[in-house]
């Protein structure tokens, strides 16, 4: 075991998979010699060379389009999109090509590829270094969407994603990159994609979240404890496939639910969770399902800290549902 940051855990997953399997190649902007602007690919260039740790020309569509070809030929590309806010030039390649290749070719071609991309706010990045674009991709059949919230899961989920036979959007909560440390096995292990984890068990209310919202929800849960409210925090870890069983079992147990995500509220993934609860467990509910989310505005700069859901806002939602 080593005490690693989330960023180091990701680096460790990449390194071990590249050692284990020569089909694994990382590529993107600044991922080679510089080791990535966040240093997620640090040291890979020295160990594996420029052919496997590839600095590409500056074009997201090119990075993903090229990765699709590599994957169709049998490699396991792990392209990096430097910030998720920059992923849109590659949107067509992701949703029209990578996502549909297996289906449209009747399984003749597949695209086992992991698109790693730092997402989320709280780092004073303004419009274009802060977005959480999970809903676009979770809405696209053929893609998996995975979001770790801690170093252990980050490594185990990334290894699973690299070994997965389908394209995975791997969203890394950059706010937690260096602010969160945890015990991470140095050996090879996997965390299965599609299984939520109950980060904190409780009996009064369920809070569903993922990525950088998990620490905030835990803080809110702690505050709630002082008010004798026992909060269950469920870390979804993967939006597609979604662990519906764990969500429903939790709601059946607590009878109440709050969903927390930092993307704009309307049409966000939290709405999907609320709808699933309404479809499958409405008879267990003792109050409304509330969403604590980002605002329906472009991501702001000066008022970022007000835009972002914080533990205070999550706690108020918890209280509101409890007192309904």
């Amino acid at each position: 075991m080593a005490n690693l940051t989330l960023l180091q855990a990701i680096n460790s997953a990449l390194r071990e998979e590249m050692r284990r399997d020569e089909r694994v190649i990382v590529l993107g902007e600044d991922v080679g010699k510089n080791g990535g602007v966040f240093r997620a690919t640090e040291g890979l260039f020295d160990e594996f060379g420029a052919e496997r740790s590839v600095d590409t020309p500056l074009s997201e569509s090119g990075i993903i389009g090229m990765s699709i070809g590599m994957a169709m030929y049998g490699l396991r590309p792990v392209p990096e999109i430097q910030f998720m806010d920059f992923i849109y030039p590659a949107f067509d390649q992701i949703v029209s090509e990578a996502a549909k290749m297996r289906y449209r070719s009747g399984g003749q071609y597949t695209v086992p590829m992991v698109i790693r991309t730092p997402y989320g706010g709280g780092i004073r990045g303004g419009h274009y270094h802060s977005q959480s674009a999970e809903a676009y991709f979770a809405h696209t059949p053929g893609l998996k969407v995975v979001i770790p919230s801690n170093p252990y899961d980050a490594k185990g989920l990334l290894i699973s994603a690299i070994r997965d036979e389908d394209p995975v959007i791997f969203m890394e909560p950059k706010r937690l990159y260096r602010s969160l440390k945890g015990e991470v096995p140095e050996t090879d292990y996997t965390v299965p994609i599609g299984k939520a984890s109950i980060t904190r068990a409780g009996k009064d209310i369920s809070v569903f979240a993922y990525g950088a919202m998990i620490p905030i929800c835990l803080e809110a849960a702690k505050k709630a404890e002082e008010h004798d409210i026992d909060v269950e925090v469920v870390d979804l870890r993967s939006l597609v496939p979604l662990d519906i069983k764990t969500i429903i079992n939790s709601v059946k147990k607590t009878g109440r639910a709050v969903v927390v995500y930092e993307a704009p509220k309307t049409g966000g993934f939290g709405a999907e969770i609320a709808a699933i609860i309404a479809e499958k467990a409405i008879e267990y509910l003792e109050g409304p399902v509330l969403r604590v989310a980002g605002l329906d505005t472009p991501f702001p700069y000066t008022f970022e800290h007000i835009y972002m859901p914080d533990s205070r806002r999550v706690f108020e939602a918890i209280e509101k549902v409890i007192n309904f």
Binding site: I68, G69, M70, G74, D92
Partner: peptide, 12 residues
């Protein structure tokens, strides 16, 4: 869209 795929195949 197929043009970058052709490049990826060639690279691989």
């Amino acid at each position: 869209t197929q043009i970058p795929h052709a490049v990826g195949i060639a690279y691989a």
